[in-house]
């Protein structure tokens, strides 16, 4: 029988005291997730914009793939990446397995389809809205992209936040390719899983509270952004 109030109390103590182990794990988690989001954003925004604004052969196929990948099981991504990065795998020479770089790659694979698809939908909707006007103005599509992206900036930021939310809550893939090595690849989600299995619920709870706080912050930001957009 666990002493729930006691666990909460100790967890808050760990957070308030800024326990070095806790801080290290949180910082590594943020570093990995933010890196993944930045890389995914640089891939997804141009990809989603092109898919949203242009019609070309293969567009529906790519869109279908992206939509399918949105629901990709993280453990499958982790497994595939593990096979690629393991010593006997094709990218084994890079020696990336069980490093934070591998975790960034895994998260990036998981969130790129999400940000791309949301970007595509946003740009496609805007483009439909302006389509006749663009023709009437004689505007080539390439010249409309930058102003459309400016118009879509709040929606795009929301998409990026959604990607960050998914990345920071990810556990399966990063556990497989990161290995949950102490001081090297231990992030919030993998630590929660490990510490819970060890019965060290105070640290797991402290990390859970921080993870929830991050999630609430992201959700609140998305609501504020949506509201500012509709004013």
């Amino acid at each position: 029988m666990h002493d729930a109030p006691g666990i909460f109390y100790t967890a808050f103590q760990l957070i308030i005291r800024l326990e070095p182990e806790l801080v290290e794990i949180v910082l590594l988690s943020l570093k990995v997730s933010i890196s993944a989001v930045i890389i995914a954003t640089f891939i997804s925004i141009p990809l989603g914009t092109v898919l949203g604004a242009y019609t070309f052969r293969g567009r529906d196929f790519i869109t279908g793939i992206l939509n399918a990948l949105m629901g990709l099981p993280p453990v499958v991504v982790g497994l595939a990446l593990y096979l690629l990065l393991s010593r006997s795998g094709p990218w084994g020479d890079l020696e990336l397995l069980f490093t934070s770089t591998a975790m960034v790659i895994a998260q990036c694979i998981l969130i790129t389809p999400i940000i791309s698809s949301l970007t595509q939908q946003t740009i496609e909707d805007l483009f439909k809205q302006h389509k006749l006007q663009f023709r009437a103005l004689g505007a080539p599509t390439r010249l409309t992209l930058l102003p459309l992206l400016k118009d879509a900036k709040t929606s795009l930021f929301t998409s990026i936040l959604a990607g960050f939310g998914r990345a920071s809550a990810e556990v399966g893939a990063v556990l497989i390719v990161g290995g949950n090595i102490n001081h090297v690849t231990r992030v919030m989600t993998t630590t929660i899983a490990l510490e819970t299995s060890k019965g060290n619920l105070e640290l797991a709870m402290a990390l859970g509270i921080i993870l929830l706080a991050i999630s609430f912050t992201i959700t609140s930001l998305m609501i504020v952004i949506r509201k500012s957009q509709s004013v």
Binding site: L137, L143, P147
Partner: peptide, 17 residues
């Protein structure tokens, strides 16, 4: 339809085109 920008920016867009 217009971009969600100033009138001047919308007019400049046409000049750019």
């Amino acid at each position: 339809t217009f971009f969600n920008q100033s009138i001047e920016s919308n007019i400049e867009f046409v000049l750019r085109i």
